[in-house]
Design a protein around this nucleic acid. Structure first.
Ligand SMILES: [Mn+2]
Ligand SMILES: [Mn+2]
Ligand SMILES: [Mn+2]
Ligand SMILES: [Mn+2]
Lengths: 217, 217
DNA sequence: TAAAAAGTTTAGAGTAGTCTAAAATAATAT
DNA sequence: ATATTATTTTAGACTACTCTAAACTTTTTA
């Protein structure tokens, strides 16, 4: 069984590795986990002994099959809890992450199975991020950034950045997961967009915002 | 803010002190928390510095007003989570304690307020144990052990012992919280009882069982 | 291709919590 | 009252995790 700290390192490494594809450097981990490189080196050795990652001195780490499976189980818990907080307890989508950071470490497979069922086996969390199933598989529809979308009607599916500030901004603009978004005009000057939400509300959003909104066409 | 370990010690001390009335000895704490007396001595000093208990060398500890309030907040969380697990997720009443031991340490007052509301502000957990309100107050009806009850009709309110084994035994006998229990006969020989549940089901229970069933008359 | 810069690891130390063994104190029995 | 026993505390050590500072390796620059 992994300690809370080991779980946090492994999850961070998994995310930085883009789902286990890229290898990850010591400083990136330190940065992402708010700790010092020296501490990372220590922990990385521990995780390597447990076969969750492979570690090559000075060249970073790679997530193993076993590590991927453990990481996905933590991510699954995190996203199920976020869904619970929003759907059942009425939290705002910008309030849930920090609480889920704690809840994801509760150890009880029965709890997670029952929670999943209670929530109706959701396939995405409140930010549109996919929830892996019990076996670590997720089925995701092809999503693209609104910035790359054509002028066709699209549906908002997820956020790429889930900072409270951005989520608040979206809420204020009336943009939410499931909303229909059509691009009316793309400004050549700065890449900002004029869009229409649900065929009703016209708003202007910056290029940066449009890069963090994921849609399906 | 208290560490998880500090919270566990404080809660154990509070329970051993009968709600802050009696003073508690080092060995009792060690026993209850499954640790060694030497470790208890260390921790007890830390809690005393934080004004949660008073500590007199060789004579044990007493819970302070502040300690009582902290302990009640942990107990409140524990019992709300147990209620959630049974009422919403369909856990069995004997399965919830260990998971609640973990959940009680999640730090978020918003979460607890929302959970309380989601559950409909319950006044007792699945074992009939009272849930203190936000201010640490509980309103309890006068309960007595079934062993001390007269032949009048009583209502099952709580268990005194909540070990999975006892809870399982009760479930098998058809005894549950809210059930009507009437004593038909008390055996002089061993103090065992013949009772009738909800006016329908006759069962025999031992004296020991009857001492762990709390009822109101 | 050698020097400088950037990144990483090692060494040594600190905190929180735990333990064993020995010393100290309190309670009990003669 | 004194000796024995039970309880508690202290001393010293160990694990998990963290840090700073110094040493080392890799990458970049000139
Ligand atoms: Mn999150
Ligand atoms: Mn976490
Ligand atoms: Mn419990
Ligand atoms: Mn606990």
């Amino acid at each position: 069984m992994l300690s809370l700290t080991e779980e946090n390192y492994l999850k961070a490494i998994y995310h930085l590795s883009d789902g286990g594809t890229k290898s990850v450097l010591t400083n990136e981990i330190a940065e992402s986990i708010q700790t010092k490189p020296a501490s990372v080196t220590d922990m990385v050795k521990k995780l390597a002994v447990k076969n969750l990652i492979t570690y090559e001195k000075y060249y970073g780490v790679k997530v193993t099959r076993q590590g991927k499976s453990e990481a996905l189980s933590i991510i699954r818990k995190h996203r199920l809890w976020e869904t619970f907080l929003v759907e059942k307890l009425g939290f705002d989508w910008g309030q849930v992450h920090d609480v889920a950071e704690q809840l994801e470490h509760i150890q009880s497979s029965l709890l997670i199975e029952k929670l999943d069922e209670f929530l109706g086996f959701p396939s995405a969390d409140p930010h549109g991020h996919p929830i892996p199933d019990k076996n670590g598989k997720f089925h995701v529809s092809r999503q693209i950034a609104l910035a790359e979308a054509s002028g066709k009607k699209t549906v908002m599916r997820a956020v790429r950045n889930s900072s409270p500030a951005f989520l608040d901004y979206l809420s204020k603009q009336g943009i939410y997961i499931g909303a229909t978004i059509k691009i009316l005009e793309r400004m050549e000057f700065d890449g900002s967009l004029e869009i229409i939400i649900d065929g009703k509300k016209k708003v202007y959003i910056s290029k940066e915002a449009s890069e963090n909104i994921l849609v399906t066409e």
